[in-house]
């Protein structure tokens, strides 16, 4: 087997054996979907501006999955690998440390896609989910969002000195994003003060952008969001590359 492929397949297996990741990336979003889906249903409703409740929520749950894999799972694993000198052990072989990092990124990407697939399938079957946008555009935008969120995760992976600080940093970034970005609860429900905080979070803009594309709105209506995410990508990637600590 190709060397890189082998590393990816093994790292992916390891990721699937981690119950925390499995729970937050696969089951938690589905749980939210089922919980709120049973409460609100997916009929067009005034509360959701005449849209189906789940049609509105699923794109944000998708962003939530991206945040779990990109900001929690990836940095935690990488920081742990560094702390336990696993990266160092691989340095002394023809395997490169960067191959392991790459395998972790791709494994988390795969897990993201599995999580999204599961969510969409159950949403379609249980709540007859509707998608109004252009699928190709949606996929491109999704990849763009994944890139920006993973860039944040890479930066955290690169600078966290150990698993504990990675956990702390990830939680500090992840949980506000989870609840304040609109990924779990619609922003429309927030009071003005919370909306302000919400606006600082990159994921808020990701959710807004992806929701818009999901409902077939024009990309040009979201220049602000795109620019913000682009800045996040550039800044985080540059810092991550500059500051990444292998030991």
């Amino acid at each position: 087997m190709n060397k890189r492929l082998m590393i990816i397949s093994i790292e992916f297996k390891l990721l699937l054996r981690n119950y925390m990741n499995m729970f937050f990336a696969l089951f938690f979003p589905v749980m939210m979907l089922l919980l709120f889906g049973e409460m609100y249903g997916n009929e067009p409703s005034e509360f959701f501006n005449g849209r189906g409740g789940m049609d509105v929520m699923v794109p944000s749950y998708i962003c939530m999955i991206v945040a779990v894999t990109g900001i929690m799972s990836l940095p935690l694993t990488v920081a742990q690998y560094r702390e336990r000198k696993i990266l160092k052990r691989f340095k002394a072989t023809p395997i490169k440390q960067s191959d392991i990092l790459l395998a972790q990124i791709i494994s988390n990407l795969l897990l993201t896609l599995v999580g999204i697939g599961l969510l969409l399938t159950i949403g379609k079957i249980r709540f007859n989910l509707h998608f109004y946008g252009n699928p190709i555009l949606a996929i491109i935008v999704l990849l763009f969002i994944i890139l920006s969120v993973f860039a944040i995760g890479l930066l955290v992976s690169g600078v966290a000195s150990n698993g504990k600080s990675a956990t702390a940093i990830s939680y500090i970034i992840y949980f506000p994003m989870l609840f304040l970005s609109g990924a779990t609860m619609p922003i429309e429900m927030f009071p003005a003060s919370l909306k302000k905080i919400s606006n600082v979070l990159p994921l808020t803009h990701a959710v807004k952008l992806f929701k818009g594309i999901w409902f077939g709105e024009s990309l040009f209506d979201f220049t602000k969001e795109i620019v913000i995410l682009l800045i996040v990508i550039i800044v985080c990637m540059t810092l991550a590359i500059k500051m990444f600590k292998w030991e």
């Binding site: 087997m1 060397k3 082998m6 590393i7 093994i10 790292e11 297996k13 390891l14 054996r17 981690n18 742990q80 690998y81 696993i86 052990r89 072989t93 023809p94 395997i95």
Partner: peptide, 17 residues
């Protein structure tokens, strides 16, 4: 070594290198 990695897997990983 990595959490929850099996003996055969870590061997494959190195063998492949």
């Amino acid at each position: 070594y990595q959490d929850k990695i099996k003996v055969s897997e870590i061997c494959q990983l190195f063998h492949n290198a």
